[in-house]
Design a protein around this nucleic acid. Structure first.
Lengths: 210, 210
DNA sequence: TCAACTATGTTCACAGCGTATACATCAGAG
DNA sequence: CTCTGATGTATACGCTGTGAACATAGTTGA
């Protein structure tokens, strides 16, 4: 190797770029994830990225995939907290609530990352929106499905109610997150947001049970 | 003026730019609203825009304001259709449904414009999320408030139920629109989307009444 | 009527961006 | 030891948003 210092990583540029993308997008959102800016953060020439990603968009998508895992982790830890209830029905409902509030909480505390959350190229086009599962599904979505299926099993939801519940839940929770980060609620104090979030999540849960 | 043909509009560049921005964003979304591209469409030099807008962002916001009116118009025409019911309660509920489905319909048939809809710089920070109104409120939001207030007046909703209903409704409807345009539902056939939209809107309406 | 002023648009320039192409360097295989 | 493929660099091109200086058209006031 002739003693000259190598670029400090060899064969791991891909993950280094994703890591840098995570750090940058966390504070600056998508805008902060320019290809040149990310490669600069890693200390490499701009075009080096093209050895690992076809596009700048491909890099962003790769980072968005990581964000999916972070989102799922945040939701999961919140769900653990909610699992400490005696009555199984209460516990199942509390879990569903935790799934929703976890999603919202993540969006509000990490708005930069939340911007990326829909870019994870998952596309339900191949799979009918049903209970069955195949291929890669974002783990956060899977948590929602699990919570709803559990409510079906213990008889809190009927098959009919279960049918489109996932889209009602996801729509409400995602929509609220968007309104709270980019929309008209964007500069409301956190306490207001939290109280509205709780009401909104409770409302949709009542809706799917009605 | 020495007979030379003038740039064809004098004093109306601002509205011409907004018009061009509408046309471009309709098919290409925000990305198609680059300052150079818009000025090119009008046939004027790029920097001419700076006489009427401080930023490119300011131009985008101005276009987004126009989009708000288009959204409101679409929702309104749809609401007219739904107003033909005998029972006042049914009519009031049908109106609320129409408000929601109108919002979703607009988003799906004009996804380029829908991208701009949250950029209309309205910010509810000054005004508590209450029934009262002041200043400029996006007309589509006002239609939602009116529909809900009407439900309160005729006794379909209690004051308590009315309280946070606007955020539940807006969240659900906006979230569904986002999932259907940028999200996992983005390439579902229109019939699937329509049926899901109807279910989701019905669900949230049942939620706020429960 | 003529000069000064304001409003509006153009020209030129600059830094930044994504990315295509050609080149350099290194690791491992034959 | 050389060939080959993988990886990073250098250079360049066209695009972007925007600042500064300039030109011109219409208005205003003496």
């Amino acid at each position: 190797m002739s003693g000259v210092s190598r670029p400090y990583h060899f064969g791991e540029l891909r993950s280094a770029l994703i890591e840098a993308g995570l750090k940058l997008s966390r504070s600056g959102g998508i805008k902060a994830m320019g290809l040149r800016e990310v490669t600069r953060a890693v200390g490499v020439s701009p075009n080096a990225a093209y050895r690992h990603f076809t596009d700048q968009r491909a890099l962003v998508v790769a980072v968005a995939d990581q964000v999916q895992d972070l989102l799922a982790a945040a939701m999961f830890s919140r769900m653990q907290t909610a699992s400490a209830r005696a009555d199984p029905k209460d516990r199942a409902l509390a879990r569903l609530r935790a799934v929703g509030l976890g999603y919202i909480d993540f969006a509000i505390s990490e708005p930069g990352w939340f911007e990326l959350s829909l870019l994870s190229q998952d596309d339900t086009s191949s799979r009918p929106p049903s209970v069955t599962r195949e291929g890669r599904v974002p783990p956060s979505y899977q948590m929602l499905l699990d919570a709803l299926n559990h409510l079906l099993e213990i008889g809190v939801l009927t098959l009919d109610q279960r049918a489109s519940a996932e889209w009602s839940c996801w729509s409400t929770v995602h929509g609220f997150a968007d309104l709270a980060t980019r929309g008209p609620l964007r500069s409301q104090p956190r306490t207001t947001i939290n109280s509205l979030a709780a009401q909104v999540v409770d409302t949709v849960i009542m809706g799917i049970r009605a």
